[in-house]
Design a protein around this nucleic acid. Structure first.
Length: 511
RNA sequence: GCGGGCGUAGCUCAGGGGUAGAGCAUCACCUUGCCAAGGUGAGGGUCGUGAGUUCGAAUCUCAUCGCCCGCUCCA
């Protein structure tokens, strides 16, 4: 484990040193768990997006892509369940260091009082036997009445406080009830704090409740609200999918572990609309497809595993994670969920608009079921980076830092370099670079010794280095050096585009 | 929020009361010429911030801020 943590540290500093990922706002001491992608990170990230987009959208006739807004109508999040389900008042016990949901603590207290009533009822039953009228007893017994009044008053105070978002009121209620921590037994509480999953902001220039809107906590809803738009304008026939890449925001209580869990992150999602009753078939189909997609990258098959969820979210009837062996251990990389017709039905209800599909084969209308695939782009980035980063021990006892990125994902595909900074070699190198730069991202480097330059390219994952030497001037050939084998071949300049182009193309991944 | 760790040059760190150092990196020149770390020179730091103690604080005290790790939450 120690080894693994150190490994993550090395990756973080390597990422910073070479311009992949910087801590955000670093000159102001940074902002917790927020990161910026640098010049090479942006290239790598874009390449990952391309890999996903090409394989999901362009290679499936029945999947199209959209790009919806981050701001959405507030009702969207009521419909999706996000407003109600993720809005918890939390409180900490200072002695046990345990954190509780404040409303749950109060509920438990109420439950205790309810038990007292039940005890009294049980006593009555024992004493009077079959003649005992439970309802009448509850309505008249002073003990029961007193306890019931207590419950009513607590529930009333709690409801009022929660509805008014009066956190102090919730705190006072806990204190007044004398609730103690089950672990430490003390009543030494922190204040009650609200943890909202969603970030909110004000739309328009006048602040007020009416203009409060949220930053989307998932991109999926942008797809659901456009279901009909896309289906009709694209004349889509079920089964079909809508894909999207975009940012989402979640106010995680702890956002940690580099770019693995951030409050601002990017998702690559596809919602696949299917006939009711066929969802499990497609769920299995996409589980397999998505796993194959990951494995095609060649980061190591043993680094992936499938984890089926036992506890399901409120909208799902089946769910699985594709987990990756990150430096911190196996963690979720992609989720595949059978979301049923929950979302479309909810939107249909709240919007009052029919969100249905007329199936000409069945000759009937229905709300489609949905199978979702959702990859964390930043997690994908980390999986690629962490599994590619190596400190190799070479035969001569020296070490080299190398990023063995999949060729298609590498920020630069080729580095062009003159062996010497004179004799017309730099000019010739520029010529070669001009030949290649329209087809692939190139970098030019003439500083330092050849070996040093090779190492620099290894460290940023550039698959190929083309060296222009004196022989080049005579016969138009160059050496091309491979990042992984460190072997060189001499080839003619004319062949370069084909030779390199073939190897760095996405096609090799799709086959 | 709690607990722990850490803030000195771009990076890795040394220095623990007398006014800031090394290696690497950067830049220039020389040398070499296909797998990093040859030579010479140069630039670069109000030692996280603020207060206190002291003749004097990077160094001691207190506070504060930030980052990292762990715990609580997680679609």
């Amino acid at each position: 484990m120690q080894q693994k943590d150190d490994n993550l540290k090395d990756i973080i500093s390597h990422a910073k040193e070479y311009g992949f990922v910087f801590p955000s706002s670093e000159i102001y001491d940074g902002l917790a768990a927020t990161y910026d992608y640098g010049q090479l990170g942006a290239e790598l990230k874009n390449n990952i997006k391309s890999y996903w987009w090409k394989s999901m959208v362009q290679m499936h006739e029945n999947i199209v892509g959209i790009d919806s807004a981050i701001f959405m109508h507030p009702s969207v999040w009521k419909a999706s369940g996000h407003v109600d389900a993720f809005n918890d008042p939390l409180i900490d016990n200072k002695d046990s260091k345990k954190r509780y949901r404040a409303d749950v603590l109060i509920e438990e207290n109420i439950e205790k009082i309810r038990q007292k009533i039940n005890k009294d009822v049980a006593k009555g039953l024992k004493r009077f036997g079959d003649d005992f009228d439970v309802e009448q007893f509850k309505a008249t017994n002073p003990n029961v009445l007193r306890n019931q009044a207590k419950i009513d008053s607590i529930e009333d105070r709690m409801r009022t406080a929660l509805n008014n978002e009066d956190l102090e009121g919730v705190y006072n209620l806990i204190i007044d009830l004398g609730i103690a921590c089950p672990v430490s037994g003390t009543k030494n509480w922190t204040e009650v704090r609200q943890f909202n999953l969603m970030f909110s902001t004000e739309l328009g220039s006048v602040s007020g409740d009416a203009s409060k809107i949220y930053l989307r906590p998932e991109t999926a809803q942008g797809i659901f609200v456009n279901f009909l738009n896309v289906q009709k304008t694209g004349r889509m026939k079920i089964p079909f999918g809508i894909a999207q890449i975009g940012k989402a925001f979640r106010n995680e209580i702890v956002a940690r572990q580099f770019i693995f869990r951030m409050r601002e992150f990017e998702q690559m999602e596809m919602q696949f609309f299917v006939r009711p009753g066929e969802e499990m078939k497609w769920y299995e189909y996409w589980k397999e497809q998505r796993m194959n997609w990951h494995k095609a990258l060649g980061l190591g098959e043993k680094n992936y595993r499938l984890h089926d969820h036992i506890k399901l979210a409120h909208y799902a009837n089946a769910a699985a994670d594709i987990e990756f062996n990150f430096p911190m251990g196996f963690k979720e990389l992609e989720g595949i969920h059978s979301r049923t017709d929950f979302d479309l039905k909810q939107h249909q209800e709240l919007s009052g608009k029919k969100l249905q599909y007329f199936d000409t084969e069945l000759n009937e209308n229905y709300v489609p079921y949905v199978v979702e695939t959702s990859v964390g782009l930043d997690r994908m980035f980390l999986s690629v980076l962490s599994s590619s980063f190596k400190n190799e021990l070479l035969e001569d006892g020296k070490t080299r830092a190398v990023l063995s990125l999949p060729y298609a994902l590498a920020p630069y595909k080729v580095a062009v370099m003159p062996l010497l900074k004179r004799d017309g070699l730099p000019e010739k190198a520029r010529e070669v670079m001009n030949l290649l730069k329209f087809d692939m991202n190139c970098i030019y480097d003439e500083k330092d010794t050849a070996g040093k330059r090779y190492r620099r390219q290894d460290a940023i994952g550039t698959p190929f280095c083309v060296m222009i030497d004196h022989q080049t001037l005579e016969d138009e050939t160059v050496t091309i050096r491979n990042r992984d084998t460190m072997k060189q071949d001499r080839v003619s300049i004319q062949e370069l585009n084909t030779i390199i182009g073939e190897k760095v193309s996405f096609n090799s991944l799709f086959k």
